[in-house]
Structure formats: C-alpha cells, structure tokens
Amino acid sequence: MKFSLSALTVAALMLAAPWAAAQNVAIVNGKAVPTARLEALAKQVSASGQPVTDEVRARMKEEVVLREIFMQEAQKRGVAASEEYKTQMELARQTIMIRAMFADFAKKNPVTDAETKAEYDKFVAANGGKEYRARHILVEKEDEAKAIIASLKGSAKFEDIAKKQSKDPGSGANGGDLDWATAASYVPEFSEAMVKLEKGQTTETPVKSQFGWHIIRLDDVRQAELPKYDDIKPQISQQMQQQKLAAFQKELRDKAKVE
C-alpha cells in the first residue's frame, strides 16, 4: 500500500513553508542560518548612515552565508582551541562589554537643553565683541621691518611686499591677509598693537612677537558674527557628552586600586 499525504497535510505544509523559510536566511551544510543574523548586520549598516536597499540587503545575505561557511570550516580545523583565538575572543569580549557600558552611561546621563544653552552662553561671552580684518608682513629682523615701513610711506604697496618678503607662508601668498578673527586669536603683542589701529592704518613701528617682527595693517572692524544656538546645539551636545564620558572614565581610573 502506497503512503500518500492527505490534502489537509499538504496544505498545512504549504502554509508552514514560508513561515519556516522566514526564520532562516539559508541552510548551509544542513545548518540553519537564522534571519536574526541578517537583521543584526542590517542594523549596524543602518546605524552607520547607509541606507539598507534591496541590493545592500542581498550583499549582506551573501556575507552572512559566507560567514557561516567559514565558521563551519574553522570549527572543523579546531581554530577555537588555539591560544590566538582565545586571546582575540577575550579582547573582543572586553571591547563589546566596555562599549555597552559606555552606551548605557550615555543613555543614563544625557546632556540636557539647559546644559547646552549654558555652554553656548559661555561661548558667546568668550567670542562676542569685535572681529578684525588685518594684514601683516612678518620678517626676521627689526631693521628689515623698519625699512618696509619706510617704503610703505612712499609708493610701495603692502600686498606686494607681503607676497615677496613675508615669512608667513599662509598669509604672505594672499598679500598678508589674515581674514576675520577676534583679537584673542593672536599672540598678545600682535593683538595689542592691532586693536589700537584705525581702519586703513599701519603700525608706525615694528611689532615683536615670538615669530619675528610684524608690520600690521588694519583693514576693517565689525561685530563678531556668531552661529545661532539652534544651528550648533547638536555639536555642543556631542562635545559635552564626550566630556561627560571622559570624566566618567577618569573617575573610574582614579578610584581603581592598581598595584
């Protein structure tokens, strides 16, 4: 007597098959590769900012299958018993645990809106006020600087001399232009001389700093243009979160008894 499946049994198997397949990405040498592995990899890719398209998902599926193939071969060869494998596994375990601990700390110690606003206000207080657009010519010797000042009182152009004689390669190529900056951006000797100048005025005497001798011309002055709070709030929050994490790490290190 031949054995045959009833119509009800066949229908049940047909209904169950898609469900069973959905649980696994593939069956490799008789071993199921669960879909959870693919989803975990997709989550990592998505977290990196890359969209998980059908094409990307197909490549990830192949990656998961290849990993299973290679893992099976590694197990056959007894790789798990080697000291190198054990050492690397321990390092990986430590990395994962530490990363998870820091993620948990960040979750439980978020940067508040009040904290970011207070930090922004400090930034404004430190960087507000005036910005200066200046040019300078940097030389090594005071006599050389004095000679340049004398030539500028004649028909010589500041920009031309800066291009030819300035020892500052960054600004020299641009005719001595230092772009817009606050006075605090420069060394004290330079900023003190610069802020005393009127628009269009050049220093009458050379200014000495740790870099050499400067001839400074002030081209313009304006109120500092600072970014709006909402525009830089994410950066402030990220920076403050990093500071909190650094403080947490230092606290743990300081409390640890290391012999």
Rank of each mutant, 00 (worst) to 15 (best):
Q165F: 02
F158T: 04
D160G: 05
K157F: 08
F158M: 02
H136C: 01
A147M: 06
A150L: 09
I137Q: 04
K141N: 11
G154C: 06
D160Y: 02
H136W: 07
K153N: 15
E144V: 13
K157I: 01
D160I: 02
K157Y: 10
S151D: 14
I137V: 13
F158D: 07
S155T: 09
A147P: 06
A162T: 07
K163N: 04
L152Q: 10
A145N: 05
L138Q: 14
E144D: 14
A162Y: 05
L152G: 05
S151A: 14
A145K: 01
A147N: 12
K146V: 12
L138F: 15
A147I: 05
H136R: 11
D143V: 13
E140F: 06
E142C: 08
K153L: 01
A156N: 06
G154W: 00
V139M: 11
V139Y: 15
A150M: 04
A150E: 13
G154A: 15
K146D: 02
K153Y: 00
L138K: 13
E140V: 12
A162E: 08
E142Q: 13
D160H: 02
K164G: 09
I161V: 03
E142R: 14
F158C: 07
V139W: 13
S155V: 00
K146P: 01
I137H: 06
A145D: 05
K157E: 11
G154M: 08
K163G: 07
H136Y: 11
A150H: 06
H136S: 11
A156P: 06
K164Q: 15
H136M: 03
A147T: 12
I148K: 05
L138M: 13
K157D: 12
E159T: 05
I161G: 00
H136N: 10
K141I: 06
I148L: 13
A162I: 10
H136T: 03
A145F: 10
L138D: 13
K157L: 08
S151I: 03
S155A: 15
E144G: 14
S155C: 02
E140S: 14
I137P: 05
D143K: 13
A156G: 03
V139H: 15
I137R: 04
E144N: 02
A150Q: 11
V139T: 09
E159D: 10
K146N: 04
K153C: 03
I149M: 08
G154F: 02
L152H: 12
G154T: 04
K157G: 07
K157T: 10
Q165D: 10
E140K: 14
L138T: 07
Q165W: 04
L138W: 15
K163V: 10
K141C: 09
Q165H: 00
I161A: 01
S151G: 03
A147E: 10
I161E: 07
A150W: 08
D160L: 06
A145H: 05
L152V: 08
E144P: 01
L152S: 05
K157R: 12
